[in-house]
Simulated assay, not measured.
Amino acid sequence: MMYFLFVLPAALLLFFLYLVPLARILVISATDGQGLIANYGAVLTSAPIHRMMWTTVEICVITTAATLLIAYLIAYVLVQASERARLWLMLCILVPLWVSVLVRAFAWIAVLNNSGPLNSLLVASGLIDQPVQFVRNQFGVMLGMVHYMLPFGILPLYAAMKGIDPKLVSAARALGAHPFTAFRRVFLPLSLPGLYSAFVIVFIFSLGFYVTPAILGGGRIVMIAEYISLLIQQGYDWGIAAALATLLLAVVTAVVFIAGRFADWDSVLGGSRR
């Protein structure tokens, strides 16, 4: 009974601040506008919605792949680095998390716009004749998203890699395996649960990302979260917006259920392996 009293405040908070609003969204998707069939029918048959959804999936897949590749390399360097170097590297990884996502998005605008330092440097070096459009397009959106997602990919991977006994790789090397073969046959398979965990976190965050795509996309690249916002703020179409939000929730739930079966959440959350 005492344990129940400790859990009750968190359960009530979860119920009133998450489950009740979520249920309200589900009700709106089925009752607002012309009703359930019309709202979900529009989501399934509208060409603009299909283009927006394809854009969202494409950006999320590329962003997740790029983030996991870079995050894996950085996490591997962290595991192999000395304590002092690891401290400084970890500081460089965590500091961006303390900076507002809005500030970071506008910082990328300042760096990547036509008159920004990157284009000025490229023009001055003679590599290009005219400034390159780095922002207000899909490249700018993906670059900003990868930058934001990197810590969320690095930390789960580092937690998983840290639990791998380095003697296993040394044993493979001692038995005559090439360094790359030892990595591919020993280290990489043992790090896969952390990779699955990082995938779940990064992909889910990417699906619902709003601020960075809205700023760096400049209205030309619209993802599902921004589209839902436009439907509510400009079209006042709560029914279709709620149907899209419900579809997004269903996709996120499916990703968590499928990929979560392979993820090593114990190592990611700091637990011990058995």
Rank of each mutant, 00 (worst) to 15 (best):
L168C: 09
V146Y: 07
M149K: 08
V135Y: 03
C92E: 00
Q138S: 04
A171R: 04
N119C: 07
F152R: 05
L143M: 12
L157Y: 08
L102T: 08
H178R: 13
L118N: 04
I93N: 08
S100T: 04
L143F: 12
W108I: 05
G126M: 12
D165F: 09
N113H: 14
P131L: 04
Y158L: 15
N119Q: 12
V111D: 01
P96L: 00
A160T: 09
V101R: 03
L118T: 04
A177S: 14
V135W: 04
V103I: 15
A105S: 10
L143Q: 02
V101K: 07
A107T: 15
L112Y: 06
L157F: 10
L168V: 10
L91Y: 07
P131V: 08
A171I: 02
F139R: 04
W88I: 00
L150K: 08
N137E: 09
L97E: 08
H178S: 14
L143Y: 05
Y148N: 07
G144L: 06
M149G: 00
I128D: 08
S120Q: 13
A105N: 00
A160V: 03
I154E: 08
A172H: 08
N137G: 09
N114R: 13
G153F: 11
A107P: 11
V169T: 14
G163F: 00
W98G: 03
I128L: 12
M145T: 05
P156T: 04
V146I: 15
D165L: 09
P96S: 00
A174S: 15
G153P: 11
Y158H: 13
W108T: 02
L168K: 13
